[in-house]
Design a protein around this nucleic acid. Structure first.
Lengths: 147, 147
DNA sequence: ACTGTCACTATCAATTTGATAGTATGTTAC
DNA sequence: GTAACATACTATCAAATTGATAGTGACAGT
């Protein structure tokens, strides 16, 4: 799929898909959120071919979701850390995970707990303005230009 | 990416990626949520090749996210409607869109309003248990088996 | 009979994927 | 000092996927 198409689309979902429309990228982001930063960590944990990993890390870096950082001069070693944009992707990951737990959740799954209370996290998407859960109220879509 | 790997993974995010790891599928789901149901509607709106659309609709149907339904016997015509699993994908779409609006939002974008109040929807992910916004508190990850 | 609609399939070139092996730059152990 | 090890990759290339284009089958309308 041509990424240039989405970047100019007026739909914010399409805009996100330049990097998101790829399973490896999402898994790399997931791992980055658990604290992984290095090439070999991602490669081993994901069992991904190094050619693919190189390409994905380059794209995520270009897109401003990861940042390359030198962590050793001698020997020269780089690592990849989340930017603010990358960190803000966490809610998306949680919702993807929540959907998977609900509809692909047969068998044992990883669980996410609130570290303070020790309770399992139950993510919900609310509209901050009305307080209503997304999906419970009708939505109106406004194209740019149609005011 | 081999979809058999993710289906057996203990990570709920990986489980979702069997169909989610593809930009077209997400765009089809987005369009399905706006009310599109027919092959030609999706094809025209997305400018997607019919070969690809056929494959994606088949996968989404097999995965239980869309459901094929006959809407005309003569001539024989099918349409694709969201299942409960498909409808429950809406929060994910909103969060993907929210990220795109924030980090890829230069230029005019589509807006989503609450139809009752007419206010723009500001989606947030909260932990229903603690009430805290996702990303504001430390998370503990528990692998199945490690209790 | 002719044109149009809809939901596709057939064909096939071009691109992408990903497995495997190897490289560049060092450190560490003996 | 040299052999092994570590890390972050690149080179090569077969296989799979993508997607553009053209065509098909079943019917409807005029």
């Amino acid at each position: 799929m041509n990424s240039k198409i989405n970047a100019k689309n007026s739909c914010p979902i399409a805009r996100s898909l330049d990097f998101l429309g790829d399973a490896w990228s999402i898994l790399i982001l997931r791992d980055a959120h658990t604290g992984l930063t290095r090439f070999e960590q991602f490669r081993k944990n994901l069992s991904i071919a190094p050619t693919i990993l190189t390409k994905r890390l380059a794209t995520l870096t270009e897109e401003g979701i990861l940042e390359k950082r030198v962590y050793s001069e001698h020997p020269p070693r780089d690592e990849y850390v989340l930017t603010a944009a990358g960190r803000d992707f966490l809610p998306v990951l949680f919702m993807i995970g929540d959907w998977g737990r609900k509809y692909r959740g047969d068998g044992k799954l990883v669980r996410f707990l609130d570290a303070e209370t020790g309770t399992e996290i139950k993510p919900v998407v609310l509209d901050e303005v009305t307080g209503a859960k997304i999906g419970t109220r009708p939505i109106q879509i406004i194209e740019p230009g149609d005011e």
